[in-house]
Design a protein around this nucleic acid. Sequence first.
DNA 1: CACCAGGCAAGTA
DNA 2: TACTTGCATGGT
Length: 227
Amino acid sequence: MPEFAVQSQTGRSLKEMHHLLRDRFGPQDWWPGETTLEIMVGAVLTQNTNWRNVEKAIRNLKEHGLLSLDGLNTIAPDALAKEIRPAGYFNIKSRRLKNLIRFLFDRYEGSLELLSGEKTEILREGLLTVNGIGRETADSILLYSLERPIFVVDAYTHRILLRHGMADEQMEYHELQELFMDNLPEDADLFNEFHALIVRAGKEYCKRKPRCSDCPLGCWEKGPILL
DNA sequence: CACCAGGCAAGTA
DNA sequence: TACTTGCATGGT
């Protein structure tokens, strides 16, 4: 039994919210035609960082032929930091990328084939042991890079649920995640699109200073605007 | 000038 | 468990 309402303050189900967003914005095409590795790298680089800055960093890596397991495994941390500078937090993210790559070599022989054969639950536990990979980054890798049916929770997700009366400020990551995963079909493509749409709507309408007027969700305007 | 962006870990109490 | 702080660039 879900502990929290599966309907919003305005009486909408998650499915209805997804359809409203989809009808407004269409497919978001997150991480199309990119490699498994590139998506994993992007998931780390985008931590608390605007995606446009991440694109610059990834472009640098590509231009220098570093966007490969061996390239990232071999390069010195300082040199890597220099390449990903536009993404911010470049020193710590350099170490985080090295940690991730080392994990892939230590546990999967640096083989994305072997990685892909691993069970989702084991993968998630493993990723979470890597210093610099927390729940959102791990889940982003699972969903967007490895196409596992795991729903990604981020600040926008929490904020939108708050404004629809479906969550409170204290709710924890896994509770928010369960709200989606217990009330939607277990479908990676659905989770992919829905989360991307939430981010899209969040960017345009539901920031800390919300601009609710044209939001397709027509959220509960007296709802909390915190977070 | 202030504020924010597709977080996380380490330190403190 | 529940805060607080450091990490940093680039756009608005």
